[in-house]
Design a protein around this nucleic acid. Structure first.
Lengths: 345, 345
DNA sequence: CTGTTAGCGCGTTCAG
DNA sequence: CTGAACGCGCTAACAG
């Protein structure tokens, strides 16, 4: 039934040459006669030969596979990053093994182990919501397997990171809210253990400070920012319960912000008149809700491309030097209706 | 620097037993003494042993890896399906190799070949937009590698499929529009080569027919349905140009429908009063736009789970019989404001 | 330009 | 219950 897998030996026998020659011919080795090569290629196709990756991997001690660990697959941002990575990886002949931590450190640890055992040639990671330490990645460092963090990064020794300037972005968007006349701006964000949220929080506070506004902890709402579970209702409720009620809010996730806007509206609050709203990511949803959401354009697809390129360059030995580099991609403020208390520009 | 990879031989030497025993011990073989097993496990951990997947794969002729080919990663629907697949796969000890066809048959063929050469144990596919024939999957059939189609399927011999009842869903949502008083309902959908679009088209037509409405080709708009490129403007324009203008439209993608609604509004058309709109998928966006979008709930996460379970069961030999089965998941109409010409229920 | 040889690490007969 | 020996398919010396 399942016809036998054919090997270089079968080809060698058929052509009455040595397996080594076949191996070389198949891999387009320069030191092989054109004609021999052609013969090998032809008969290989004819016989339905396919190279055996394991045998090759076993020999070469590499897999041409890159691992990716993300927090969730069902997020626009993540999907875009992966799309970028997949493009670059496949262009360079690498496969991607993707797994999701589901925002849990325990699962992230398990994923890391699986990746390690799968002997990926390199690993790209965006940390889970609650990851406390990153010792589960130590085996990679120890074994010299390139490890790269993106988005939710950790300054691990010898690990490149790909990020945006979260501080600056938050500073800009908060400043924008202030210029629109907001005096009391709340901040809805994720766990401050994650750089992305911590940096944005700092940028937000700095903007307040630079503009003579006072920050107090009651303005801060920490939330899972997961649009699929209904935390959004909680967050919106917290906003509404603040006393005095804020006149602006900076929410570090567009989809979540969109849900919050809906709750606010249901509670009779006008956006942006009563509360101006700003999001983060430039998720397509930001353009589709009414009012359109002011946000930060996060170059997610590009981040995937850059991360993959960086890792692959390193794998190919084309750049051993940029190991500890931090690559910062350009993000930018996008002003839309949800924050325009003063009307259109 | 990179400390040497340790093997069963190293463990064997350290314990002064044979590699065979170590191999068995590690795999919890019944015919090995408890104590020996324990010793092996302990020292393996201590020495930082990790099993070599290739050597094992080379020997066993399987990879514990499942391939997935999707049209795009950057789609809510796809992300949800993958999330479901990843969960099931990782629970069963399988890795997922994911690649995207970017809606191009050429890329899909390349992806299929890569998967084939990577020797995935099974493959799950949702076809690209323009795939004409599926002969690029023949090698899998020939070699007896389980192949499964989901969503955008093809009735290939011996391939299970996982789908929803697209005909019925379309019939229901169209009927709903008609009940709301729509007399002239347009249909925006994808390439009719794909079952999902063809079936929905048929369901739509049947609903018209059953309710005494006439279908004509000018009501049909074929579009890539890709929200990231701007085809939406074209589609909306075509809707507006129809003469007489339709009073309802069934668009087979929520995100795309949301974009179209925006264009319609910009053109001064009221939804649902002038044109009632219905989408498809129950993308979160459908709840966030104003008016909320009437849609069909597509159990995407569940589809991922079911597809992966089906394939894995088959791989484990627990069910050779369901090969040609077609699994139909339950979808359901969700009525929201965008179609309620008659006001709230 | 081509062939010979050897070994990557594991699992599995077959013998004890 | 354990060990010896072989081979999965490929590639990299080393020789010619």
């Amino acid at each position: 039934m399942k016809n036998k897998e054919i090997t270089i030996y079968d080809i060698a026998k058929a052509l009455d040459i040595s397996p080594a020659t076949v191996s070389r011919g198949l891999r387009d080795h320069p030191a092989i006669n054109r004609k021999t090569k052609k013969k090998i290629m032809d008969i290989a196709k004819e016989m339905g030969y396919r190279s055996n990756t394991f045998a090759s991997s076993l020999r070469l001690k590499r897999t041409n596979t890159i691992g990716v660990i993300v927090h969730r697959l069902d997020s626009y941002f993540v999907a875009m990053v992966l799309a970028g990575m997949e493009k670059v990886a496949s262009e360079s002949g690498y496969n991607l093994i993707i797994s999701q931590s589901l925002e849990s450190m325990a699962k992230e640890v398990a994923n890391a182990n699986t990746m390690f055992n799968s002997r990926v040639d390199g690993l790209m990671v965006s940390l889970a919501y609650d990851t406390e330490d990153v010792s589960h990645f130590d085996p990679f460092i120890t074994k010299g397997i390139p490890l790269l963090f993106f988005d939710r990064v950790y300054k691990h020794k010898n690990c490149p990171t790909v990020v945006i300037d979260n501080f600056k972005s938050a500073y800009e968007i908060t400043t924008h809210l202030i210029k629109q006349g907001c005096k009391r701006i709340a901040h809805v964000t994720g766990d401050l253990k994650r750089n992305v949220y911590a940096d944005r929080f700092e940028g937000y506070k700095k903007a307040l400070e630079d503009n003579g506004l006072v920050y107090s902890d009651e303005l801060l709402i920490i939330n899972y920012l997961n649009e699929h579970i209904g935390h959004n209702v909680d967050a919106a409720q917290q906003l509404l319960n603040m006393n005095p009620r804020p006149d602006g809010v900076f929410i570090t996730n567009d989809a979540f912000a969109a849900y919050c806007m809906r709750e606010l509206r249901l509670a009779g609050v006008a956006v942006p008149q009563d509360i101006a709203v700003a999001g983060f990511n430039n998720d397509p949803i930001s353009e589709l809700v009414d009012p359109n959401l002011t946000t930060i354009n996060y170059p997610s697809y590009e981040m995937g491309e850059v991360a993959a390129k960086t890792l692959i360059n390193h794998l190919k030995g084309e750049s051993n030097m940029l190991l500890t580099d931090s690559i910062v991609l350009k993000s930018e403020l996008i002003i839309r209706e949800s924050s325009l208390k003063k009307g259109l520009l």
